[in-house]
Amino acid sequence: MSCQTLRACQLLAMVCLLVVAPSISRADPLPRFEKPILVTGTGQTPGSLTMTTLLDRLGIKTTHDPIVLPSKMGGYKTMIVVMGASLKGLGAAGINQEEELDRDRMIFKKARELGMKIVAAHIEGTARRNAIADKFIIPFAPQADFILVFEEGNKDGLFTTLAAEKKVPLVTFKDFREEFANIVKTIFP
């Protein structure tokens, strides 16, 4: 290949990049959420601790309070709510489902009053999809500003239906190493 052809190729590649790159970022449907971030959960799922730890490992600092009360929600811009319940956890720990549902309703109401953005997440897959967990998902997912779901937990399409109900943007991911990491790094810049 001659030197000139090589130059032309390089030029062409650069032009392509200039044209294509902005269109990729425009097509990017992911919203952005501001810090500081509060991480909690519905159904007292241990998944909220998992979420905080995952984000911490990806360099995103958050405050974790699994059973936060409305009085302690001041000062945050974003609330991540991990939804679900462990069947064994709730029963054996003697947590009252109705009381927990009340707390969950209160924190959603308070977040709205404080003007916080809400990211609802389900990250635990099949293990945390059951009749009880659904009680802590169905009322809350449609109230969020964004829903983030590990695909394995959306096999029955529940989250897709809930997101469509109130036109909440939904993103699903298949793995944590790449997809999840890329999504959270984008939405929590």
């Binding site: 241990p46 601790l49 998992t50 730890t53 490992r57 003697g94 944590f176």
Partner: peptide, 24 residues
Amino acid sequence: AADAQATMMLDGMQISLSPSPPRL
């Protein structure tokens, strides 16, 4: 346990975390 879970998940292995029930 959550730290180890994060290591495993970020390495591509799905695993849940469950607190030991205090009454069992």
